[in-house]
Design a protein around this nucleic acid. Sequence first.
DNA 1: AATATAATAATGTCTGATATTTAGCTCAAC
DNA 2: GTTGAGCTAAATATCAGACATTATTATATT
Lengths: 255, 255
Amino acid sequence: MTELEHLPHAAADADADTLALVLAHTILSGQWASGDIFPRELDLCRHFDASRNRIRNALATLSSCGLIERTAGRGTIVRDIADWHLLDPNMSLWLAGLDTPHPQLVHEVFAFRLAAEPYVSELAALAATAQDLAKIESAFNGMCETADDPEQRNAHIDYDIAFHEAIYSAGHNLVWRQMGLLLRPSIVALIQRSHHRVDRLDDSLERHRRVLEAIRMRQPAAAREATEHVLARTAADLELSGRPTALRPGPLTPL
Amino acid sequence: MTELEHLPHAAADADADTLALVLAHTILSGQWASGDIFPRELDLCRHFDASRNRIRNALATLSSCGLIERTAGRGTIVRDIADWHLLDPNMSLWLAGLDTPHPQLVHEVFAFRLAAEPYVSELAALAATAQDLAKIESAFNGMCETADDPEQRNAHIDYDIAFHEAIYSAGHNLVWRQMGLLLRPSIVALIQRSHHRVDRLDDSLERHRRVLEAIRMRQPAAAREATEHVLARTAADLELSGRPTALRPGPLTPL
DNA sequence: AATATAATAATGTCTGATATTTAGCTCAAC
DNA sequence: GTTGAGCTAAATATCAGACATTATTATATT
């Protein structure tokens, strides 16, 4: 029961990455249920007019992202969303490239950012080097310069991502830094949904500026608070229901 | 200048996964510096007496974990630790299998756990289902049963990992759940370093029990505090310098 | 000296054959 | 009837060798 029908026909001379992207999008957009059996290699070869080698490479990429599971003899089955490797760079790009973002993912990634990002900003305020600050600042300047021009929407998105990613990096922790990969899908989804009214954009820029200033001044508490305000604006633009789960630890007892 | 010398000889009939593991370990254990050029495919074929296909599969796995970067014409170079995909399941297994854990990684992963895990426990206390509780409890029981017997050290480690992982899962957030992949290397490193004195083990079990109880009773604050105590014990066993960076958010202002 | 060009060396791809694993089936034995 | 061994079919995994593409380096040419 290989449902080859709802696979799009990619461009004839699609390279391996493009092929992987096309296949990944069919999964990320929810066209398969968890446990479904994926088309066989030879069928995919015919469908995309590609060599078995290319198909296998593409499938290996999907497999390494946890989208499918392949076993000799059985075939290829589609894995559950809980098994996806959200922090693989491929996933970051694929998810950001969806025409309609995955609703559950947008929601849960944002819940994560809401809890984690204020703390990450604190870390950045404590650990940022001059180089880190330069990166954050240049990203912010880029955001400002590209804010008004609708032509430069993509550039603005990239600067926005670079801004937040630079903060994740400035914390100088290998684990937290990787979380920066979640930003692209999250921010792209945000821009797609929000309405780009000029006043909101000005307000958003001002909130970002305050984060930058707090980190520059080495004020963790202020950085936390400013980041919470950025996220609050984001939540409003995403039209998410308030603050799903906020990070509210009680006082730390001496250990 | 292909430094083939410090590659171990794998078992002759090593399958693709074993090959990838052997190659990965040479990188994870720090035998290459960032930017070093990795041996060429054909040299690896000779060295391991494997077909080029197998070698390429293994290298593709390493590449998908961010350990190496391959470009046609140039060759294969070793990537920096900052580029490693710490949350790939392969990495979880490989890192846990090192004879001597990577010191920087152990430190930074623990810094992350110290900040994140109390919050994750809060989430679990709020969202855990009966099934989640059953998993946590059965893992805890396994820890108790295997605590005394040195023969069952590996089983004890697995139950320990399962306990914490079940808590990450119980938060029912796709992002936080993935962080559970960091547990295996972290906990294995812990067990390898700690001295397994009976009184410390009893104390550790008691601290775990309190986390379980707090989650069962749906008491987020208690769960947070109990988890902090578990981590404090872990820090002591790891002989880490106090609490590198603790999560201490200020009060949330109304947004 | 700067620029174009050719040679080289590495990874990427194609093709077709073969090996291995898994699921399902038949059929005999208890 | 149920169990088990063995066979068959179908899928992925691997092998082998030729060829294509890319990036570097050396070599000419102006």
